[in-house]
Design a protein around this nucleic acid. Structure first.
Lengths: 364, 364
DNA sequence: GATGATTTTTGAAACGTTTCATTGTGAGGA
DNA sequence: TCCTCACAATGAAACGTTTCAAAAATCATC
């Protein structure tokens, strides 16, 4: 009832003219234009997004495919994407995949039938995504992959400097005098996990420190996983004096394990995470972490996507966002009876050892 | 190209027959049905959601309107709704409103043009929602309002037992011996805030305890708000021995304020929150809180909605979900020199309520 | 005022479905 | 053999847009 035909009737013009007024697609003389605009106002007409999408072969929807909205890192990403999309007239369709490639595939297949303008994906099923992306691109939809990428991803991407961030935080631990540093990595088939582990290893090997295999654990990005692996690590002899957790959820599991074994953090064990979730600074001890700009990740992806939607055909862009060290109470120099006096050790590891500590600590 | 006409051509049948096979809307004899199905398989045909929606006057989308996906309570709600929706073949379109009624209105107005099957709303702009809802319902879309409601909401709703939960946790504090209990409420124009405050007042008046006006503060549901109001409360004389924060974000702000004033929790101040977010139990001290079933809230709303979509025309349902007390380390009996000696010797004798703590702690 | 060039407006086709009145088919009864 | 009747299959219309060729109106020039 409230359709263009009605507007045309009220304004006494043709359908085509109404369309031209609405889309500014052709010149329309003032009197007609005014009559159309008034008619639109008078009945509060709004064009059907479905009919428009059908005809134009494209809608103003953007599919956002993420593993799980309840994982605290992702909402920030979503929010960034939503803000940019919304203010440019695009809407987000949210799809949880649970890291399940069947669900991912189902979402991708169905989403396409809505002819979205684009797709922002945090992928879980890498092998298929490339094929899917091609199929979307044939439909004229842009695809941006974020956070972690399929192995040979050719399209646009936005990620963070995982390796660099991991190396930086590891070096910080080393500078404090830690020598036995363990790592609890995320699922290693995810590129971000793998990069963080690589950064850790690089920093360790640069410092000439060994990384025994049992000091490297892999788990899912959640609290129970972190707790379980930490229990394992904290029973090793010699016990690590620091643990690098591949994200803050894992780190919280480590904190729990530490407490339940009656150990002190940072006294007996230094803990660092990755993400710097909002509440990391509110834990006790407040959690040192590598900040990832989640909001920027989403916002940048949306901007990249919109560029493509508007016709940018330049070569694929790979944007890497900076991470930032956020040192807090959960890290301190090791106190380890089995080692020579701590001060000297720290001094050998990094000449201005103690001084470094206070200076970096201020950053929290 | 991959449309029904193509399928009809390949299978050598008419368009209508293809439609009938796809929708099971009419009997189709086996040989034809098989040919159609094979044709569909052979080119991986999927019907256009847009064309279908246009023709049917309804899509399989559900609009989900929430204040802000980065507020940690909402992702659980979203997830619950998404799971139920997805497994029933519906998709979620996410809309952040920022509690901004202009944004809310913009979202609602545009969403409608997609002819969604329904709408799940956590409202911020109460006056308009009722009008909007009617407009959606005229379009055949169901509307379910959750978490907090417009004043005279007539439609389906799902909320939690805010008043009951608030009363329960307040009574717990009273039983522990607290007499000077302050409250930091959420924005009082939101029904959930108002209900929580009412529950608090009810428990206090039942116990014959006074609630001086300066012990009742209002703020937004976030950490800075909680911190600011807590600073205010903790400088009052006499100082409250317990603070009921209307959600966990506020409670975290209270914890921060407590620390920054050099006070001990629970020694000097007991703190309880509302929500029981995932990390509440991981704070130190772990935060006592009133658990709200966020996932259930979303899932129930989606189920209600789908009932309506499927033609249920029974009177509006108002579902109220139970809350649950989660007592943890952040509460203990008060230690207050200005009060007469406590009957419970243990409470005064033990340094800041250790005994009581362990006993209540079991419940977490 | 006639002519041609240019701008504005029109109307029909198309997008890919669903729906429904119509036509086609074959079986059973007379 | 013919007539009904139930059932299957068909094809055109409709959903609400956009697009574009064609028609109409306007303008500039002579």
């Amino acid at each position: 009832m409230a359709n263009m035909k009605e507007i045309a009737r009220i304004a006494g013009v043709s359908l085509g003219t109404v369309s031209n007024v609405l889309n500014g697609s052709a010149r329309v003389r003032d009197p007609l234009r005014r009559r159309v605009e008034e008619a639109v106002q008078s009945i509060g007409y709004q064009p059907s997004a479905l009919a428009r999408g059908l005809r134009r072969d494209k809608t103003n929807m953007i599919g956002m495919v993420i593993p799980d909205v309840t994982n605290p890192f992702f909402p920030a990403v979503i929010r960034g994407a939503e803000d940019v999309a919304f203010s440019n007239g695009y809407r987000l369709v949210l799809c949880n995949t649970d890291n399940d490639h069947v669900k991912e595939l189902a979402h991708l297949n169905e989403l396409r039938t809505y002819l979205p303008a684009g797709l922002i994906v945090i992928p879980s099923n890498f092998s298929d995504l490339t094929k899917q992306a091609e199929s979307y691109q044939r439909n004229g939809a842009a695809v941006v992959c974020i956070d972690r990428l399929p192995k040979r991803w050719q399209g646009d991407s936005v990620t963070v400097a995982n390796e660099h961030g991991a190396a930086a935080v590891t070096r910080h631990l080393i500078r404090l005098g830690h020598q036995r540093i363990a790592v609890i990595a995320g699922p290693l088939h995810l590129t971000n996990s793998e990069q963080r582990l690589r950064g850790f290893r690089r920093a360790m090997s640069e410092a000439g420190l060994p990384v025994p295999p049992e000091y490297v654990q892999e788990t899912s990005f959640d609290v129970p996983g972190g707790r379980a692996k930490a229990m394992l690590l904290l029973r090793l002899l010699p016990r690590p004096t620091a643990i690098f957790a591949a994200n803050d959820m894992i780190a919280m599991g480590v904190i729990e394990a530490t407490r339940s074994l009656g150990l002190q953090c940072p006294g007996d064990l230094s803990i660092v995470g990755f993400d710097d979730l909002e509440f990391a600074s509110l834990l006790n001890p407040s959690l040192a972490s590598v900040f990832q700009p989640g909001y920027q990740l989403g916002a940048t992806a949306a901007r990249l996507l919109l560029d493509r939607v508007r016709g940018d055909t330049s070569p694929a862009r790979h944007i890497v966002l900076e991470t930032e060290l956020r040192i807090r109470e959960s890290v301190a120099p090791p106190v380890d009876a089995s080692q020579p006096p701590q001060r000297r050790k720290a001094a050998t590891a990094s000449p201005p050892g103690t001084k470094k500590r206070t200076s970096t600590r201020r950053r929290s």
